[in-house]
Simulated assay, not measured.
Amino acid sequence: MNEVIALEGVAKRYDDAAAPALGPLTLSVAKGEALAVTGPSGSGKSTLLNLVAGLDKPTEGSVTVAGRRIDQLSEHALAKFRREHIGMAFQFFNLLDDLTVTDNILLPAQLTGTGRCSATARAAELMDMLGIRKHARAYPGRLSGGERQRVGVARALVNRPELLLADEPTGALDTASGHDVRELLTDLHRGGQTVVLVTHDLALAEACASRTIHLVDGRLALDTHARAVR
């Protein structure tokens, strides 16, 4: 299977609004692709991300992720599917302040029933890869914004998901930390990770996305492929 995401005729309406918040939209994302979703506020970026994550369901059309029609799944099945196949990194990190860095990273693995030894080895591997091993026993409040985002990405990747979703991953960071996260996402894409990121940061899209789509009023206004990720 080459497609990690396939949206067919997807539309989302709220409160019987005349115009949909998104769509109709047909879109596919290939395995190993890094897609940046851009557009002004209210253009449908967050709606698209929520549909792909299974956090919302379309009014029309079908949403297939990693070979499964997720719009047809129950809430319980969706939660299980997300834990096993989708990693999510958030603008404000969503880390648990009373857990150490290691325990924050381990949480999704524990929810899927992964053995402690295997999960701990995977967490150590990710901390080494992301340059945060020295913070393994620290608490999130002691870290910089860029370091906390790296912990969030490690947590998102601990179950080896087919898809990483990143929602404004540099939005809460200073310039230097934002640059670090751009490099991180670029490295993950180069390593073969499929990434979809929603961003207002055009420098982020240009630096680490192999493809960028631009939404306006819920419609696809532009779909461009980069020559290469630098």
Rank of each mutant, 00 (worst) to 15 (best):
M1Q: 11
V4K: 07
A6N: 08
L7H: 09
E8S: 15
G9I: 06
V10F: 10
A11I: 08
A19P: 00
G23V: 13
G23T: 13
P24F: 13
L25M: 15
T26Q: 06
V29R: 08
A30L: 14
E33I: 12
L35Q: 03
S43P: 05
T47E: 10
L48I: 08
L51F: 13
L51H: 11
G54R: 05
D56G: 06
V65H: 07
V65K: 03
Q72F: 02
Q72R: 15
S74T: 14
S74K: 09
A77W: 04
A79Y: 14
A79V: 07
K80P: 00
K80M: 09
F81K: 11
E84W: 02
I86S: 09
G87C: 09
G87D: 09
F90Y: 14
F92K: 07
F92A: 13
F93K: 04
F93D: 00
T102P: 01
T102L: 15
I105M: 08
L107V: 10
A109G: 11
L111G: 01
G113P: 05
T114W: 13
G115Q: 13
R116T: 13
R116M: 07
T120I: 04
A123N: 08
E125H: 14
L126M: 11
L126D: 04
D128H: 15
M129F: 14
A136D: 00
R137H: 12
Y139L: 07
Y139A: 02
S144A: 11
G146T: 07
R148T: 04
Q149R: 12
V151D: 03
V153I: 15
V153E: 01
R160I: 01
P161T: 03
L163T: 12
P169A: 03
P169K: 10
L173P: 01
L173W: 11
D174R: 11
D174M: 13
A176V: 11
G178I: 06
G178K: 07
V181I: 15
E183S: 04
L188P: 00
V195G: 00
V198Q: 02
T199Y: 09
T199D: 05
L204P: 02
C208R: 07
I213A: 02
H214V: 11
V216A: 09
G218Y: 09
R219C: 02
A221G: 03
A226S: 13
R227G: 15
A228R: 15
